[in-house]
Computed example of a mutant assay.
Amino acid sequence: MFFPRSEPTAAMKTLLADRLRFSVSRLFRSRGRALWASALVSVLLVVLAVPARAEETGGGNALAREMLLRADRIRFPDQGFRVDVTITTTQPGSEPEVRAYRILSKGNTRTLVQTTAPAIDRDQILLMRDRDLWAFLPNLSQPIRLPLAQRLTGQVANGDLARANFSGDYEPTLLRRETIDGETYQVLQLDAVDKWVTYRRVIYWVNASSFRPFRAEYYALSGRLLKTARYQDFKSLGGAIRPTRLVIDDALRQGNRSILEYSNMVERDLPDKVFTKDYLKKLVP
C-alpha cells in the first residue's frame, strides 16, 4: 500500500533555510568561503522547493490516479473483453423490468453494446468510438448520435455500459480516509476532464488495501446528487476477482433502483474493425 509522502510546509522551509544560513556562516569565515556557502544554501533551497512544485502541478495526486487505475482493472480487464449484463429495474407500484446486453469492449475507447433481451429490442446496438456514441436501430437507415449521460434503462446511463472505466475521463483527488465496518477506504473526488463524459463529478470509495471499489456517488453539473452505486458480490469473473453485481439507487426518486449483474466475461483480442458499421451488419440480420 502507498501513502503520500509528508512534505515540508512553507514555514518549515523558511525555518530550515535560516538555520542553514546560520550554521554555514559559522563554518565559513573567509569571504571566498562565504560565497561558496551562499551557493550551497541556494542549492539546498532548490532541493527543498521541488516537492512543493510537484504538489502544485498535481504530483500529489499520483496516489489517487494509481488507486483509480487499479480499481478500474479490478472492475474490467485492461484489454479487449466480452461480458453479458442483465439489468433489473424496480420502482414502487410497478413490476420489475429486465433487460439484457452483450458488451464487447476494447480499453476505454471502443465499445459495442448489443441488446439481447427483450426479443423485440434485440437488434438495437450502441457503438462508442472515443467519446462519440451512436445508436443503430433496425427501423432507421442512419445511426443516431447520443450523449453518454442519457438514460439507457432504469437508473443506468448510456455511459455506464459504453464507457464504464473512470480512468482517462476523470481527474482524481484524494479527499479523506473513512473506516466502514472495520475496513479502511480512500475517498476520491473524480472531476470530469471535459463536458462529454457521463457525469460531472463522482465521489468514489476505494478499499485502501485491496483497491476494490466499494461505492460511488454521481453528481450533475449543478452539484445535485443524481444516484448512488454499490459494488457487490466479488467473484471470479474473466480471470480475476471482480464485482459481479452493481446496485444503483436513484437519489431523486426514492425506491427506484437498477441492479446490474455481470456474467460470462471472456478476454478477447478485438480488432478495431469490430467497432465499425460494416461489422454491425453482421450482427443485425
Rank of each mutant, 00 (worst) to 15 (best):
residue 207 N to K: 02
residue 240 A to F: 08
residue 214 F to L: 03
residue 165 N to F: 06
residue 150 Q to W: 04
residue 190 L to G: 05
residue 141 S to Y: 03
residue 177 R to E: 14
residue 230 R to K: 10
residue 194 D to P: 11
residue 227 K to M: 01
residue 190 L to M: 11
residue 178 E to V: 03
residue 197 V to F: 06
residue 204 Y to V: 02
residue 156 V to C: 00
residue 162 A to C: 09
residue 161 L to F: 09
residue 188 L to G: 05
residue 226 L to D: 05
residue 192 A to N: 15
residue 138 P to T: 02
residue 230 R to Y: 02
residue 141 S to A: 14
residue 177 R to D: 02
residue 219 Y to C: 01
residue 182 G to A: 10
residue 179 T to W: 00
residue 238 G to W: 05
residue 211 F to V: 03
residue 206 V to R: 07
residue 213 P to V: 12
residue 240 A to W: 09
residue 238 G to Q: 09
residue 162 A to D: 05
residue 205 W to C: 03
residue 189 Q to C: 04
residue 191 D to E: 15
residue 219 Y to S: 04
residue 209 S to V: 11
residue 236 S to K: 14
residue 172 P to L: 03
residue 224 R to I: 04
residue 171 E to G: 14
residue 240 A to Q: 10
residue 194 D to W: 06
residue 167 S to K: 06
residue 162 A to W: 08
residue 168 G to E: 09
residue 206 V to N: 07
residue 230 R to D: 10
residue 243 P to I: 14
residue 205 W to T: 10
residue 219 Y to W: 07
residue 190 L to S: 06
residue 157 A to N: 13
residue 233 D to M: 08
residue 236 S to D: 14
residue 141 S to N: 11
residue 213 P to A: 09
residue 149 A to E: 12
residue 194 D to A: 10
residue 144 I to S: 10
residue 136 F to T: 03
residue 231 Y to K: 07
residue 186 Q to T: 04
residue 170 Y to H: 08
residue 184 T to W: 00
residue 231 Y to V: 10
residue 199 Y to A: 02
residue 197 V to Y: 05
residue 215 R to T: 08
residue 206 V to D: 10
residue 192 A to M: 06
residue 221 L to K: 13
residue 166 F to S: 11
residue 221 L to V: 13
residue 159 G to T: 00
residue 215 R to I: 06
residue 141 S to I: 02
residue 177 R to V: 01
residue 142 Q to E: 13
residue 208 A to K: 05
residue 176 R to S: 02
residue 166 F to W: 04
residue 204 Y to M: 06
residue 217 E to A: 13
residue 173 T to D: 07
residue 150 Q to S: 15
residue 147 P to Y: 03
residue 194 D to K: 11
residue 207 N to M: 04
residue 179 T to D: 08
residue 162 A to G: 07
residue 150 Q to G: 01
residue 166 F to D: 07
residue 175 L to C: 00
residue 159 G to N: 07
residue 155 Q to N: 13
residue 205 W to M: 07
residue 225 L to P: 08
residue 179 T to E: 13
residue 164 A to K: 02
residue 138 P to Q: 01
residue 236 S to Q: 14
residue 169 D to S: 15
residue 144 I to L: 15
residue 137 L to H: 13
residue 224 R to Q: 15
